[in-house]
Design a protein around this nucleic acid. Structure first.
Lengths: 252, 252
DNA sequence: CGGGACGTTGAAATACGTCAAACGCGGTGG
DNA sequence: CCACCGCGTTTGACGTATTTCAACGTCCCG
């Protein structure tokens, strides 16, 4: 979330590739300033070091979790960060690499932009819009955990994951790569591993999704949407654009 | 949340009283610009009309809930807004007066400030800080719902409510006025009314809180904190200040 | 071949939800 | 003044979703 990529800056050298900036809504000069400094790779399970200065980091590949631990070891993954998302720095949550991960330190400009002081107006607005989407997804998460059944939660979660990945070009059709262990997913949706497992089985039995080996296919998306009461978090304006160019970054 | 009041602008004519602005960290000129236009009163149960222009509204008295309804009638109150909080405008949540409520339309300046474009730097920073606190509380809510037992949730919720009210001078000691029905509270903490009721009884039996008639007393705060794993959401810097002047606004 | 993650399964425990009724209480109207 | 609501709280009995515990299967990797 806080995904700059989803904002008109489509693609970049995020992956070591050239800027792809199709139909970028941001002035070239500003885009230029977005050039990223350093790309680090972390292994699954590692905690990301806390951001030293005021830099902003961008998740280039893999999945990062905002993890909150309780005293007795219970774990809640407050939110997931997917490729293209910025990595926030919250005080009580730890950022943990849930898969192998590539992180790019944004140029200081990004930090200043976060300050909402300097930087260009359109970029700043995009930033704000992304933050708003972020918060909306957080609210979704609250509703999921507070009022939805295990079945609904899981469906809703998968729908969200799919949509977010599709946004950044990591899901062409109804299937996508989501290399998370069931334990991780259970900590996202607030269930025990065992029950999540059983819930996934129900979803499969009902022909709604098929999930194996980290590959998920939404076999019956309309029905899933119905069940979960899912509503897209992305303004139509954005959905129209795509297909986002930067791909294949979830795996490695 | 997004409480401007908690930011150095201590007190105001929010209640029709004089500005009290002790040790305000904001320039008088900026403060001046904060003057509020119109104060409306709404009855419990009423939904606040959606903000027409780009105005920002401030909750002066009473409690407002950010309510999300599911198709089948289930209700989740994503967050509570207490006196001094700004009223956000989210797409999927409805703002509902949970008690009799007083709302003030902020001057257009506030709107511009929300844009993070114009307005003074300190005010803008305060705004951002408040937004950060807001999000932190939202994360707390996620953890509560995702990984805490009914007992812990309720304790945690009461602690948060107490602290927030104390921040704005609506709780001197360990007791405070929280005129919410158990049904409302149950929709905040994601429990059934019946179960919330029983949970409150346990809390009473254990001598941790006493709650009757909308008046809550944290009889054993340290123990509650321990149980709920509660951590304050307010930076120490703020806590030092107080006692906030504007009072008695929860009731009416 | 052994070990370690991860997924799956079964049986039993429990936390929480649902249903339905009763209670208390302030308010209203006769 | 009393009777009769309506609304919120409380209680009991019961149903069920979800957790816990413990074991087993499987795949991968050394």
């Amino acid at each position: 979330m806080i995904s700059v990529v989803q904002h008109g800056i489509k693609g970049s050298e995020l992956l070591g590739r050239k800027f792809h900036a199709m139909r970028a809504r941001v002035a070239p000069a500003t885009l230029e300033a977005l050039r990223l400094d350093h790309v680090t790779t972390l292994e699954a399970g590692e905690a990301l070091p806390v951001e030293p200065k005021g830099l902003v980091r961008l998740l280039v590949a893999g999945v990062v979790g905002e993890v909150r631990m309780l005293a007795d070891g219970r774990r809640q993954i407050v939110a997931l960060r997917l490729p293209g998302d910025a990595l926030p720095r919250s005080e009580r949550e730890e950022l943990v690499a849930l898969t192998r991960v590539k992180v790019a330190d944004g140029a200081p400009l990004m930090a200043r932009m976060a300050d909402a002081s300097e930087a260009s107006r359109p970029l700043r607005l995009g930033w704000l819009a992304a933050a708003r989407i972020d918060e909306a997804m957080l609210r979704d998460q609250v509703v999921r955990l507070g009022r939805m059944s295990a079945f609904e939660r899981t469906a809703h979660f998968l729908l969200e994951a799919h949509e977010r990945l599709a946004q950044v070009g990591l899901a062409a059709d109804a299937s996508f790569h989501l290399p998370l262990t069931q334990e991780v997913m259970s900590d996202v949706v607030g269930l025990s591993v065992v029950h999540l497992n059983r819930t996934l089985q129900s979803l499969r039995r009902d022909g709604l999704v098929s999930a194996r080996q980290g590959y998920v296919t939404l076999a019956n998306r309309p029905e899933l949407v119905e069940i979960a009461g899912y509503a897209s978090r992305f303004p139509v304006a954005w959905r129209a654009n795509s297909p986002a160019p930067f791909a294949a970054s979830l795996a490695s």
